[in-house]
Structures are given as C-alpha cells and as structure tokens.
C-alpha cells in the first residue's frame, strides 16, 4: 500500500482520516508527578501513540503507529494516520487529540500556502516550525505534540511541545511510546544515514515501542521527505514495516 503524495491529493487524503474523528486521542504521556491535570480533557489522556522523526543525509523521515484510542484503554481506530503532508516538502507527525490534530493540520496547510502565495516561494522548515509552534501556543489546540520534518536547503527536524516550544533536533519521539522509542533511537541513531537505512531504523523503533506500549500498535505509517517531495507509505503491521524496509538496506 504505497502511495506517492502529490500536493493535489492532500485534501482528499485528509478527508479519509477525518473518518477516524471523535473523542479519540493519540495519547501523550500522563503527568509524571502523578497529579491530575485540572483540565478534564487532559485527564482522559493516558498512553497511546508512538511518533518519531530522524534526519539523514538528504532526507528527513517520520514514522508513527496507526492506533487511535480512548485514553489508551479502548482502540477506536486501527488505521489512523498520524502523519500528514503540510507542504510540498514538509510533513508533520502528531500525538495527542485527534480532533486538535486534524484541525491543526488544515490550519497549518492554509498558513503555509498563504505564505507561498505572498512570498512567491515556499516557507523554510524553520518558518513552518515557528508558525506551528505559534499555533499550538496561541491557537485553540490543547493536546498536541508534534514532530515536523522538511527539506529546504537541507533536511531539518523540529519537535514542537504541548506548550508551543520549538526545538530543532536530529531525532525526536513523542507520545506514550516515546521512552521506548528514545531508548531504541539512542542506540541506533548515527549522523548522515542514507534514506533506506533511516526508513529501516524508524520502522524498527516503532516496532520496539508497539511491542511494550499497549496503546501503540496495529500498523506503521512512514514518511520520507526529500527534495522530490513527501513519500508516504502505510504498512498493515509494525512487523511488515520492519520486514519491507530492512530488505531495502543494501
């Protein structure tokens, strides 16, 4: 199930993922201090998603599982896409509220398109990350943790926190599986890996996380952002993703 995402198809793909809307969460970790968040909607959130991003030689890769759940307790959708293209050479992976994420993606796309029309050139990844951080901080989105990947002069990766923090990094993870993902990433990450190596690495990391995080799982979505655009692929199981991408590594 491999699909090449061109700009024109973006709107239609987004409509598909709306079908998974509801009160679902691609849940983010609960507060570590054990205190309940005062906001009710946050109290629902326990565990859920694993998303990650890695920068390589000429590529920035995003990967995520495909499970949407209610508080990590009940699986509401097994084929939720947590990675969306937002510009020709930019994509975002999200953990948190499904409704916030879908609304956020539409808004970011519109803002980046307006930027392109007004400036006569696409926004840099840094600009997109700044806009995204601003939207999270000042906009109506509450439960959202993002990893933004893109290519301008070079590939770049940004993590955008729940309060709107924007930090550039070489690799990042978010969601309830993030500790597991970071464990695997710390071991496997090297600078300037090739596309096939990173794709394989990213799928292994998602697989590791889904093995031990009960609220991550079902499948894997993989997006490789290069100068040619966003190459988005979905695998039915994390195992299948590992098998397919490890074969490609020379």
């Amino acid at each position: 199930m491999r699909q090449r995402v061109h700009d024109r198809t973006v709107a239609r793909n987004a409509v598909e993922s709306i079908a998974s809307a509801g009160e679902d969460r691609f849940a983010v970790p609960a507060r570590r201090d054990g205190q309940t968040n005062s906001d009710d909607s946050r109290a629902i959130v326990k565990t859920g998603t694993t998303t990650l991003g890695v920068v390589g030689a000429d590529v920035a890769v995003l990967a995520a599982d495909t499970r949407a759940s209610l508080g990590g307790q009940f699986v509401t959708n097994q084929r939720a896409r947590k990675i969306e293209p937002v510009d020709d050479r930019m994509a975002v992976a999200f953990a948190g509220s499904v409704s916030d994420a879908q609304s956020f993606v539409r808004r970011l796309r519109a803002d980046l398109r307006l930027y392109k029309l007004r400036h006569g050139r696409p926004a840099s990844v840094e600009t997109a990350a700044t806009v995204a951080g601003d939207l999270v901080r000042r906009g109506p989105y509450r439960i959202l943790e993002l990893v933004l990947a893109g290519v301008d002069d070079a590939p770049a990766l940004y993590q955008i926190g729940r309060g709107g923090s924007v930090m550039r990094t070489e690799y990042a993870a978010s969601g309830s599986g993030m500790q597991l993902a970071y464990g695997a990433l710390e071991d496997a990450y090297e600078p300037d890996l090739e596309v096939t190596e990173i794709r394989s690495l990213a799928c292994s990391v998602v697989y590791s996380a889904t093995e031990r995080d009960t609220a991550s799982g079902d499948g894997t979505t993989l997006a490789a952002v290069t100068d040619d655009g966003v190459d988005l692929e979905t695998f039915d199981t994390p195992e299948a993703a590992v098998a397919a991408t490890s074969e490609e590594v020379a």
Binding site: A11, A14, V15, I18, R106, R107, R109, A110, D111, R113, L114, L117, R118
Partner: peptide
C-alpha cells in the same frame, strides 16, 4: 488579490477542498 488568497484558503480550511 490578498482578499482572494485569504478567501481561497478559508474555503480549504472550512471545507477541505479547493
């Protein structure tokens, strides 16, 4: 022109179509 650009993006935001 800017009114037009904003209107077309507002339409995408609201209806997710061009």
């Amino acid at each position: 022109v800017d009114v037009a650009r904003r209107a077309s993006q507002q339409h995408r935001l609201r209806y997710d179509e061009p």
